[in-house]
Write a protein that binds this DNA or RNA. Structure first.
Lengths: 185, 185
DNA sequence: TATTGTTATACTCTATAACTATA
DNA sequence: TATAGTTATAGAGTATAACAATA
């Protein structure tokens, strides 16, 4: 046997907290004498969190991104790759650094992203001068983007179904206003 | 001199892409003969991105989180820590694993988060039985949370200023509906 | 056997510093 | 000197596997 025999749980916790060794009594607790209430799984409420914009934004963003990944796994495009393809198509020949800036991605992190897309034959770097590149979609890149856009529009339609008539449009407007209002703050 | 003398840019790019060495002509380009148009910084458009919910959600979430970090740096509370304190206060004695689940954080990653809060003396682990802990706020934790909540409500007020009368409430409702609609999909 | 907490690990995303080549 | 791209690196956040102690 490798295990050093019944070592109480509290011992493990010593090295973690502040410094107070917290000599807890080793006596066995009554082993939870609950009855019907004991089986309720996790009645943990969220408090005021659902009234905070930041929290709800995070939850919604996670849900939408999961939805995106679920539908785009066949195409194998991550959100950042998708938006890059889209911007390059809308701005053929744009400088690598300008595309990165438009996406809010740092140039230093954009290198690997473009490397992947270039390795997959979706994007091409063409020299503008001897120190900068202009980005272009390949034929494969355009084809894949077309597929991705089709899926994306299907998702947007499903959001309209969830949010009702002009709900999606209202959401987009509110998000744009909020972002714009905070950027200049 | 350590540098091996004028090595053309293209050489570096060789090891990166597919495999095609792309023997570009080494002749010097005309050095950009643009005139007035050359000084425009980055006329790179976003294409259809602003019409996609996922993209606008990401942008808004980044803006709001930056705003949060800017205002909470005095208190030194990250979003995850803030929401943890809030949930623990709303559910005193709740099991560590249940709090993690309520927040959508994996138990395995929640350990370090609680360790930090405990080390700072904001949260306390109290043994429920010999394998599980109930979480509680300390007096310091309650005091810090109170400060954080005050700041948070100021931020929410600023969001109302940006989004207009019931704009913030509408946004919260739309986000909740979207999240709920996607979770059961 | 199932649950709870934990460690170790890895992968993505993001951020900073330093460097090379070029404008 | 300033700019474009790059490398190396480090920090968060998140995911899985394996484990020990306990229910």
């Amino acid at each position: 046997m490798k295990t050093p025999a019944t070592r109480p749980r509290a011992e493990r916790a010593v090295k973690r907290a502040t410094g107070k060794t917290s000599n807890r009594p080793a006596k066995k607790l009554p082993a939870a004498p609950q009855d019907a209430l004991a089986l309720a799984p996790a009645p943990v409420g969220l408090g005021a969190l659902p009234d905070f914009v930041g929290y709800m934004l995070r939850r919604a963003q996670i849900a939408v991104f999961d939805d995106f990944m679920r539908h785009s796994k066949a195409i194998d495009l991550r959100p950042g790759q998708f938006s890059t393809l889209l911007i390059v198509e809308a701005n053929p020949g744009a400088k690598q650094s300008d595309v990165a800036a438009a996406l809010g991605i740092q140039g230093t992190n954009f290198v690997a992203l473009i490397n992947q897309l270039e390795k997959r034959g979706l994007v091409e770097r063409r020299a503008l001068d001897r120190r900068s590149y202009g980005l272009h979609l390949t034929a494969d890149g355009r084809a894949l983007l077309k597929q991705a856009l089709k899926q994306q529009e299907a998702q947007e339609t499903s959001y309209e179904a969830i949010l009702g008539e002009g709900g999606r449009r209202t959401l987009l407007d509110l998000l744009a206003r909020l972002t714009k209002g905070l950027e200049k703050a």
